[in-house]
Write a protein that binds this DNA or RNA. Structure first.
Lengths: 224, 224
DNA sequence: CGATAGCTTGAGAGTACTCAAAGTGGGTGG
DNA sequence: CCACCCACTTTGAGTACTCTCAAGCTATCG
């Protein structure tokens, strides 16, 4: 999952399961805190998240970290480059996964429909990452966090009467490293959104969106 | 072309031509300032840059711009998502291109080798973009510009006796929008690199790298 | 119930931004 | 061929946003 703009197109498409009967492999499970793979590992499988949330990260030599993406249900993770994984991948919650042999991505032999679906997922990934560039390069802290909450609200938000509720399994540091901010700035921005009654913070991992429209405009151009 | 770290792996691989005899299409040419496609256009062709430089951009509603990538010889541009282009693409110089029908990416029928090469290019693109996230999200202005110059030096630098020379067909504003900075900051950072004798600015579009090692360490952790 | 990791808040500093003006160079027309 | 013009670049001054460092707070887990 990348943060792009509110109301992105491909949400529905990306949350549909890919598995066709013929290529079905046993579902995999991951405990919270377990790693699915590390940067540099050889890629044998790709995975579609069935339930739970993954976190993909890269590290700089001096310890600075970037969260590349969060893997939400429907997302495909593990695309290889030069046969290798290029991020670490950790489970933020208990996670269920549908594995696909890497060979299904690389050739259509055996299951052309799956091959095609994996390719489409890779192309969508490129497009989503391009949008994410805009956010990392050009948006303010408030715009970034508001965009993040908007996207989560659309993808995994739950209706709660008039409001919408989202669960954040990741830490403030994860959010910061995803948005290119510090934990302090993320925390202050949460506080600021709370004080302007745009969101309520039920507990650290549960956000209630009280004024979705205001959040949307903050996401788009920082105006309230 | 994305800015990642100095000494990336896939440089050689990405600059090799893909065309196999059977799928060869007439070379395309583009004048400086001409657009290859716009965001929202339907994708019919992908292109491998043969010579010259392309610029891929996205615009935000309020006019903020992000340069997504520069297309240098060897790069493939035009990957579709939902059948559409997701950036604008303009020629910064005269450009020669090898077009490939989109169908070659989407199915192996006809030319499996080309299909495979295009797929590999898409996967490399994902990996390179992941590295670029790190740069946009976590690097300082100096580190960004130094990284940019390092990558260009490796990919398209020319030996000049002891030094290395690179040509920058893009404007300072293009560089700024690529690195997530302002033109003023880019300009000031160039000046600062020049004053510390790490680079020399022959003319606005021609940079000579006088101390490659120093530039590398600036790119990696900002220390001189 | 205490320890500890994670979160929030505060104060101050620094980097990059904004606005403004001057400088540079390429291109065009006289 | 030269001069002017315009777009781009550089430099300057001041500001603002985000970061850093530090301390206090909260909640979760033994």
């Amino acid at each position: 999952m990348y943060v792009t703009f509110p109301s992105e197109i491909a949400v529905k498409a990306s949350t549909a399961p890919l598995a066709s009967a013929s290529s079905k492999t046993a579902e995999a499970r991951l405990k919270r805190g377990a790693y699915l793979y590390f940067e540099g590992d050889e890629v044998e499988w790709l995975y579609q998240v069935t339930s739970g949330v993954l976190r993909l990260t890269k590290l700089l030599a001096d310890g600075r970290r970037q969260v590349i993406a969060f893997g939400y249900p429907g997302d495909i993770v593990g695309f290889p480059a030069n046969d290798l994984h290029h991020t670490d991948c950790e489970a933020l919650t208990e996670v269920r996964l549908q594995p696909f042999r890497r060979s299904h991505l690389e050739s259509g032999d055996g299951d052309p429909a799956l091959h095609c679906a994996l390719l489409k997922a890779a192309l969508r990934e490129i497009s989503a990452m391009q949008d994410h560039f805009m956010m990392l390069g050009r948006k303010s802290a408030t715009e970034k966090l508001a965009s993040f909450l908007c996207v989560l609200s659309e993808r995994v938000g739950e209706d709660l009467g008039a409001y919408r509720q989202i669960n954040l399994p990741m830490s403030r540091a994860d959010i910061a490293d995803f948005l290119g901010l510090t934990t302090e700035t993320v925390s202050r921005t949460f506080t600021q959104l709370r004080k302007s009654k745009i969101i309520a913070i039920d507990n650290i991992h549960t956000i209630i969106i009280q004024r979705p429209t205001a959040l949307m405009s903050l996401a788009e151009d920082g105006t309230d």
